[in-house]
Design a protein around this nucleic acid. Structure first.
Lengths: 212, 212
DNA sequence: AGGGGGGTCGGCCGATCGGTTGATGCGCAG
DNA sequence: CTGCGCATCAACCGATCGGCCGACCCCCCT
């Protein structure tokens, strides 16, 4: 190791909406001598504020934060300030990974990861190095090889209404466009999702977590 | 308190597929003097085996356990042995709550709960008393007042196929029944879910986690 | 100026869906 | 025995969907 273990510890800000998980992480990280928990946040808004106030070395960020700002949005606001964001979440969905990375996350770990990997990843993140959990790395590579088609914002709008079970006419009214336009978008959505029915599109959308 | 705090501590078995959460809970519960972690399990199968071997006072059970046996099934196997099962999970979905309770869970806590509530709930569970997180209790009460319609097994079959985006003809073929029967079931499913389209049914099904 | 991607429309038509009514057989509790 | 719930099937009809054309506009980029 080139990094001295007796040097100043890495200061970490926890962000998770589950109090039990926060408390658990707090206790867990407390057992690592060279890691210090500088603060805790239960919401995205709190995380952004505390990251600015405490300027920790690393923010440990969950993506699902219940109501309000989600982890991706919080990451998008924190990353530009120079504070490293290490995502620690449950899901390894393509959409989550992509959004987190393009929001500026330094690393992406799964909660299923071994604790010592978590410690290592925190130190890596503090130095700006990227760490990805194995399944995440795999998915990233897979995506590189065969790029998934990306839905446009408008297509996601249509998909959102579709997931509420609305018919074409109602979707049209909800989005202030004509029914013909809805059908055009739907056709493209089917193409991109590899599907040919509404129900199938909703299923794939829920599966890939394309919708909130 | 009638319970002496200096008496033998409550022995707890952790079951969660996330190593980080397990380690965190381990550290967290270690800080409670009258709670002792007797073991950890990362899968349902492990939990069942360890519950039989260690006979802890309480099993802290997550419902989502990744692949293999889920938390409900594990609970169903552990509860009859007399070992209390305290569910500690993320979601407060009607379906999850119902299934866990009817599987024999003694309590149902959310990970968003405060740690001291968790400690209290563990002690309560050890004595056979039930603890429910506030949102869970609310949902249980709401369900009591206006009982949600329950889908029959067959209807869940149809719903499962529907969630794959199949058309009526394909659903019929997949389940070895006639298209007419599929439509009859669908009509009842629409009624029960308060919906009138296939896409809507899929959305509600995914929302309430009626499907695996 | 040209080109491309995204969003917006319209029309057409066959296939499918959604709703309804009615009927049969089965198991189970009162 | 007699309901009752559940699963199964049939036939019908209007409404909707899905797929296929082609078209226009706007913005960004080369």
């Amino acid at each position: 190791m080139t990094a001295p273990s007796a040097a100043s510890p890495v200061r970490v800000l926890l962000c998770d909406d589950h109090a039990v998980v926060r408390a658990g992480l707090l206790a867990l990280l407390g057992s690592a001598p060279d890691i210090e928990v500088a603060g805790e946040a239960g919401t995205g808004e709190e995380a952004v504020a505390l990251a600015a106030k405490l300027t920790p070395d690393v923010v440990l960020m969950d993506l699902q934060l219940g109501a309000g700002m989600d982890g991706v949005e919080a990451t998008r606001q924190i990353a530009p300030t120079g504070v490293r964001v290490l995502v620690l979440t449950t899901y390894d969905t393509d959409a989550d990974i992509t959004r987190a990375i393009e929001a500026g996350a330094t690393g992406y770990l799964l909660k299923a990861e071994r604790p010592d990997e978590l410690f290592a990843a925190i130190h890596a993140a503090a130095e700006g190095r990227t760490t990805l959990s194995a399944p995440v790395a795999s998915r990233v590579m897979a995506r590189m090889r065969s790029p998934q088609p990306t839905l446009t914002d408008r297509e996601l709008d249509i998909l959102g209404q579709l997931a509420h079970g609305l018919g074409n006419r109602d979707i049209a009214k909800a989005l202030f466009i004509s029914e013909a336009t809805v059908k055009t978008h739907l056709g493209r959505i089917y193409d991109k999702l590899g599907v040919d029915t509404r129900a199938g599109a909703v299923a794939v959308a829920k599966e890939r977590r394309l919708l909130p």
